[in-house]
Design a protein around this nucleic acid. Sequence first.
DNA 1: CCAAAATGTCTATTAACCTAGACAACCGTA
DNA 2: TACGGTTGTCTAGGTTAATAGACATTTTGG
Lengths: 245, 245
Amino acid sequence: MNAKKAVERQTGVALWRQIADLIRLSISNGDYDQMGMVPPETVLAGQFGVNRHTVRSALAALADEGLVHAIQGRGTMIQRKERLSFPISRRTRFSQGLGDQARETEARLLAHATLPAAGEVATGLKIAPGRTCIRMELVSSADGRPVSCSTSYFPMDRFPHMAEQFEGLGSITKAFAAQGLADYVRVSTELVARHANADELMLLRLSPGAIVIEATAINADPGGVPVQFSRTRFAADRVKLKIET
Amino acid sequence: MNAKKAVERQTGVALWRQIADLIRLSISNGDYDQMGMVPPETVLAGQFGVNRHTVRSALAALADEGLVHAIQGRGTMIQRKERLSFPISRRTRFSQGLGDQARETEARLLAHATLPAAGEVATGLKIAPGRTCIRMELVSSADGRPVSCSTSYFPMDRFPHMAEQFEGLGSITKAFAAQGLADYVRVSTELVARHANADELMLLRLSPGAIVIEATAINADPGGVPVQFSRTRFAADRVKLKIET
DNA sequence: CCAAAATGTCTATTAACCTAGACAACCGTA
DNA sequence: TACGGTTGTCTAGGTTAATAGACATTTTGG
């Protein structure tokens, strides 16, 4: 495709940012897969109808995200594809499976509360309705881009300091370990795809109409006792879920 | 809420555009419903931590969209909402909660009939099955756009002239008042979302596949005696239901 | 080695964005 | 009518974004 791509001026969005978004999209679409690199800066400048320096600003932003890597004399290599691949297996952990797909991953605790378990939460955790559990709202990002938001429930009596531990350690796995649970496995995962709601649009920085994949999962200790009930909503255009049997 | 809102600099997105997006969101959320207008420019500038001129640029963009309309000396009025916000609380009334969200609201009586109460209607109204009640079919519109259609049931013996009163007064609240009921409260509301059926497609002027939110509600007099059982179907893409506790 | 092609760096200029302050015009109300 | 509060307009200056051009540096391939 040699077509001129659409960038608009005076919309309040800088050209370099629009161009960065379009190049990211092209990478994600696999447009440059054969070459393994982005077209030369001069070519991109021609396609977008802008100066080479403007393209350089866009590429610098993508390099900052860790998406591309420029080498003088050779070109700008694609380092990572935008769709992060999440393995889903008996040993699913959030940050671990990402490996070197992202330079930096972060899970931020938005809110937490204690409340009586009810409905599917009580059923999933196999505790009596009314027993206290901890709810935590997380947003997970890779290289500064949010990829998922989740709501998790933990039995209060077994993991009373889940939220505090998580805040200090930044990881559910480590928070479990700090409270005496060295290992756990995924016992069930259910997937649903739907349109993002208003909250998800904001948390995941999506555009209206965007699609989320909702994964409802239960983790259990090695003895099979449930330790976590979670509902994670992934930004569908940023991830690929890989079911491992 | 007097909290400072988050705008980021040097992201390639102009501050005025970020602010315009946030104000649009607030309007859509109904944050300014009581006033019917946006806060003064100086206040917004303080909230966002920017110069007043920057806020003016944002408001100019929203005015260009037709979302707001500034009047010198008075303020910046909200002209149109993306979604009408319906408050749902103990004192829910249809037209009242809309405030200045729409220039003009109308409730049209399509049909009415008297029939014996049965099933959930009798249960909801707490009257013996077989006792006569009045059924009314309404379509409510804001600025000419239908937003909901509803089916309501009233006990015949207590409000024998519900339909006639409504036709004259154009409001359920007023029709109640004319028949001696000065006040009533919402005692239960149940919400369901589903695809619209053929009737709803026509009444609400929707496209096939559209979604409706079905609210099944019971209103009672101050003594707790049910006076109205209603099932309202909202065009999901035109409204937002705001649950107030 | 040389030339072509690509990225890196620098200067300079213009346009857009943001801040700051002052004052005019207008509305509502006391 | 006077006043406080709000939007409208103007000037001025600083910062960021974008364009333009020149040249250096590095890689690749003949």
